[in-house]
């Protein structure tokens, strides 16, 4: 400790008020006697605060705000869900019973696509043309005649 610290150390803290002794010890003893009393036959009174309130302590307002935020998030989430499932836009899921049939259908479709055939069920107009230079498909590549 340097001189300054030693000087601070020599400053005596405030003394404990002597009149507190009797009161504090009496209260402590009273608490012990109360605790040692046998439980009476009467049912214990309901606690002033329910047990779950202890979970929210010490900031019940903050917890309530968090709960409200979650409710709002859940509400928004529910509101943004599509009206009904299976509207046709999403992928088609097969149940385990239909799985072999689904798989076979997918295989067929893949086979048709690879062969370049077109599903007869599909209208011709609906066949998408490749993007880029559509003319290149119609016009065969010109052969250069070497002079």
């Amino acid at each position: 400790m340097d001189d300054f610290e030693q000087f601070l150390n020599r400053q005596p803290p405030r003394p404990l008020p002597p009149e507190w002794r009797a009161g504090i010890l009496a209260a402590a003893r009273a608490g012990r006697e109360e605790d040692a009393e046998p439980a009476s036959a009467e049912p214990a009174p309901l606690p002033a605060h329910p047990w779950w309130l202890a979970w929210l302590w010490p900031s019940p307002t903050a917890w309530a705000a968090v709960a409200c935020a979650w409710l709002v998030i859940l509400g928004l989430n529910a509101a943004s869900q599509p009206e009904a499932a299976g509207a046709g836009s999403g992928p088609v899921y097969c149940s385990s019973v239909e799985l072999p049939a689904c798989f076979a259908a997918q295989q067929r479709q893949l086979h048709l696509l690879l062969r370049g055939d077109v599903d007869p069920a599909q209208p011709r107009d609906a066949i998408p043309l490749p993007r880029g230079n559509p003319g290149a498909l119609v016009r065969p590549p010109t052969q250069t005649v070497m002079a």
């Binding site: 803290p13 405030r14 003394p15 404990l16 507190w20 504090i24 010890l25 402590a28 003893r29």
Partner: peptide, 21 residues
């Protein structure tokens, strides 16, 4: 009880200064 009093007499002044701080 006497142990409680002993504890009080031995430590209460220091606890008072500490808690007051």
């Amino acid at each position: 009880s006497d142990d409680l009093e002993r504890l009080y007499d031995a430590h209460a002044a220091a606890l008072f200064a500490w808690v007051l701080s």
